[in-house]
Structures are given as structure tokens and as C-alpha cells.
């Protein structure tokens, strides 16, 4: 009981993942700034932002539905934190593992997007409604290639449990090279999930002020921002666990450090991608996903099926 509470609330649950998420946001913003030849924010910036938002006034617009408006961010935060309990962090074991948990992880990562949609829709602001509809439109475009490429890697490992996938790829590290296309696809799809620059259409600040978050202020906005930070960490951790889970067989502390470094590497790749590209239109984004990413993901799936036949 106490052990379960500890793992849910402190490590690797709420406290650890929040601090790590805020640190990851700082890391992302710093790299973004350095690539633009700026100095960038100091290390405590994201913590100051978070505390300041917690201390601000909460405004619920009088036309909004207060219950849905208030609950949506909490659901989003709870679901992303839950995902972290299923990702192996310091050894090839998770706290709660079962066969098929990769499907659950993928679907729990979809919950925040739907929560953003619901929160934006019920705040009844025009900008928020446009943003939330774009949020869901985008979901249908990036979700299919993301699922296909991650499940293709799972297919090669012959298991739908994250722990077994990690064990398989640690035993056969060279097999990771077959999944390079899938890794690229899921990296780009993750940018869509996190609403980062080429795909930040739902919160395009130059056209629809802040998208689904337009009406949020104070504590609820702090929760929403924390959700996106944690989603970034969890998404990167999922990619690491599926595509290159090296180092987890080392001693607990070394394994943990190596895994964190790998997560930071994926986050750095995400920041690099968001620096070098500009925002697409929603129709261009959907065309890109269905015309190029889905066929590549299908190719990866077929490749892995063939390889499985040949190698095993």
C-alpha cells in the first residue's frame, strides 16, 4: 500500500515526472533559443512560470460550462502521469506490466488531446472552438502513422508488452536498425501530438490566439502546460523504450542515467525539428500525414513482417 502510494505520488509518479517535465521544457526552450543565436531562459524559468500561474486568479468565463472546463485539464494530467508508471525507467521491469500494455499506453496518450478538445469546446470562445476542432482533426492524421510505426517495432519483438519489447531489443541491439524508418515517422508524429511547430496548427498564436487554451488562466493553465511538458517526456520515453532501449540492463543507477540521457536526446531532436521548420496549414498537414507518413509506416510494417519470417 505505502509502496504503491510512493510510486504513484513520488517516484516515478507525480512529483518526479512533474519536475522532470518542467526541466524538459526548459531544455527544449534553451536548445530552441541557442539554435536561434539567443541566450535563452535561465534554468529556473519553467518553475517560475509554473508557480506564478498557480498563484494567479482563476477565471471561468460565464458562458463556459464550469464543470467540463475545470475537469478537462485534470483528466489530461492524470492520464499522462499514469502512462509513466508503465514505462521501464531503471531496469527491464515496470511497476505494473501486463501483455498488451503498449496499446494502453498509446490510448492513454490520446486522452490529453481529447481533454484539450473538450476543454476548448466547453469554454465557448470562438478561438478556443476553432483550436479544439483543429486539435481533433490533427489527431486523425498523426495517430495512424504513430500507432503503425510503434506497433511495427512491437511486431518484430513478437510481444505487445513494453517490458518484453525492451528485453528483446536489449538482447538483439542490431534489430533496432531495421526500425529506423519507424523511429523517424513516430518522431514527426510526436511533434503533432505535442502541438509543436510544424504541427502547432491547433494553438497557432498568430492566427487563433492560443487555440484551445485561449480562455484558460491561472491554475488550470498551469495544469495544462504541465500536461504538455509531461506528455513530451512520456512520448520521448516511449520512443526510447520501443526503438532503442539500451542501457537498462546495467546497474540501476547507471541504467537510469543512460535512459534519462536517451530521453533528453529524443527531446533535443524534437527541438531541432521544431526550430528548422515552419508551421503548415491544416490541409497540408493532413495531406503530408496520409500521403507520405502512412505509406512509409505500412512499408515498415511489411518490412518487419518479412524480417520476422526470415530471421526467426
Amino acid at each position: 500500500m505505502i509502496k504503491a502510494l510512493f510510486s504513484i505520488l513520488i517516484f516515478p509518479g507525480f512529483l518526479f515526472v512533474s519536475v522532470f517535465g518542467l526541466f524538459a521544457e526548459f531544455f527544449d526552450r534553451k536548445i530552441y533559443a541557442r539554435l536561434q543565436n539567443r541566450v535563452g531562459p535561465p534554468w529556473f524559468q519553467t518553475f517560475a512560470d509554473f508557480i506564478k500561474l498557480l498563484a494567479k486568479e482563476d477565471i471561468v468565463p460565464c458562458e463556459a460550462n464550469p464543470r467540463m472546463f475545470g475537469l478537462a485539464p485534470i483528466f489530461a494530467l492524470a492520464s499522462v502521469i499514469t502512462v509513466f508508471l508503465y514505462i521501464p525507467l531503471w531496469k527491464t521491469e515496470t511497476l505494473f506490466s501486463f501483455n498488451g500494455d503498449i496499446i494502453m499506453v498509446l490510448y492513454l496518450l490520446t486522452v490529453p488531446t481529447l481533454a484539450f478538445f473538450i476543454g476548448g469546446w466547453y469554454s465557448t470562445s470562438l478561438f478556443a472552438r476553432i483550436g479544439s476542432v483543429r486539435c481533433v482533426t490533427q489527431l486523425f492524421a498523426y495517430e495512424v502513422p504513430l500507432f503503425m510505426s510503434i506497433l511495427a517495432a512491437a511486431l518484430l519483438a513478437n510481444s505487445w508488452s513494453l517490458v518484453d519489447i525492451v528485453i528483446f531489443y536489449t538482447r538483439h541491439p542490431l534489430y533496432c536498425l531495421f526500425n529506423l524508418i519507424g523511429f523517424g515517422i513516430s518522431l514527426i508524429a510526436l511533434l503533432g501530438k505535442l502541438e509543436k511547430t510544424p504541427f502547432d496548427i491547433p494553438e497557432a498564436e498568430t492566427e487563433i490566439v492560443a487555440g484551445a487554451f485561449t480562455e484558460y488562466s491561472g491554475r488550470l493553465l498551469a495544469i495544462l502546460r504541465l500536461t504538455i511538458d509531461i506528455e513530451m517526456v512520456v512520448g520521448s520515453a516511449l520512443l526510447v523504450a520501443v526503438f532503442f532501449p539500451f542501457g537498462l540492463t546495467l546497474a540501476p543507477i547507471t541504467g537510469f542515467v543512460v535512459f534519462m540521457a536517451e530521453i533528453m536526446f529524443v527531446i533535443a531532436l524534437l527541438s531541432l525539428l521544431r526550430t528548422v521548420v515552419a508551421r503548415l496549414r491544416i490541409d497540408q498537414m493532413i495531406n503530408f500525414c496520409w500521403k507520405y507518413m502512412v505509406p512509409l509506416a505500412i512499408f515498415q510494417l511489411l518490412l518487419n513482417l518479412t524480417l520476422k519470417r526470415i530471421l526467426m
Binding site: 539567443r38 524559468q45 492560443a210 487554451f213 480562455e215 484558460y216
Partner: peptide
């Protein structure tokens, strides 16, 4: 702009008065 880089001091330009 990056010339003065106000993000050093945590200043960010927001689109909505709520933020």
C-alpha cells in the same frame, strides 16, 4: 527580437489577455 532576447528574463509575448 533575438537582438535583446527578453526570454532571458522570462518575458514572453502572449496572444490572449487570459495568459
Amino acid at each position: 527580437t533575438p537582438r535583446y532576447d527578453l526570454e532571458r528574463f522570462g518575458v514572453q509575448l502572449k496572444g490572449t489577455p487570459r495568459h
